[in-house]
Design a protein around this nucleic acid. Structure first.
Lengths: 135, 135
DNA sequence: CTTAACATTGACGTTAACGTAAACTCTTTC
DNA sequence: GAAAGAGTTTACGTTAACGTCAATGTTAAG
């Protein structure tokens, strides 16, 4: 509803808050932690572009899987700013590679969790049948 | 190392702590929250059987995906103890069904996260190449 | 039976990730 | 241009999920 002009290019904090169903405070908090750094208007208000927006999406996605913000920061390749750029990129690549492996193993584990729950459900259904048949 | 007799049947708290790489405190904490309820020895020490053990595994699995303990409790169908058993089972089944859907969508999301990271990695690699070729 | 290693309860401490409130400034709308 | 509605910073509060003693009891090994 805000920032009507160029609305496909830039977003206010409450635009993003509404879109991703988080509070503005949450978004500011991510900035405090160095995960976002949006531009500012003359009046010092935050304006987010599409890159900021997809970074936020990535952060929230990571969070949903129990990653801590610090890990997410590493994943998207922040800090290590004191290295030369090539070395910094190599570090990020290495980190990303490890995280990719981790994510794949998480997918496997989720599949196991799914099976656990299915087994539990099956047991419950059998128990329920047993309860309903006799009476 | 402990509980040498019948070691394939029962486990001490530190057995499980070692096996799953968590602290005994963590396991006791889960019990405080009603997620576990192991038997006790005459001397009041906890003894866990295989069911307790796999429940712990389920708890830890859920935790790894950012589920809160309370949600996990719901998933494995605790509380609602004041309902008759059939209704309790139906509730658990309903809850489990919702969780299953959620888990499947999480698997999809993880796949998206995986792609995000792969795209990031690809970008970084291109950047690295550009840095290494010219000089 | 004694000692070392392990366990128990209770209580207080810690950390991450925000929530909330206050005091103020922009921006938008009428 | 004046009020209403967003946004800003600062600072303190909150909650989940444990960590960390401390004081005391239990079990296994020699």
């Amino acid at each position: 509803m805000a920032r009507t002009a160029s609305s496909s290019e830039s977003f206010s904090i409450s635009d993003l808050a509404a879109e991703f169903d988080v509070s503005p405070r949450t978004i500011r908090f991510y900035e405090e932690k160095g995960l976002l750094s949006p531009a500012r208007t003359k009046g010092n208000q935050r304006i987010y572009n599409r890159r900021d927006r997809s970074r936020l999406r990535l952060i929230l996605r990571g969070r949903r899987f129990g990653y801590r913000l610090e890990e997410i920061a590493d994943m998207i390749g922040l800090d290590e700013v004191d290295l030369d750029e090539a070395e910094q990129i190599r570090q990020s690549l290495a980190y990303g590679g490890r995280k990719l492996a981790e994510i794949r193993s998480r997918i496997e584990e989720l599949t196991l969790l799914e099976k656990d729950l299915q087994a539990t459900a099956a047991k419950l259904r059998r128990r329920l049948e047993a309860l309903e048949k006799p009476p």
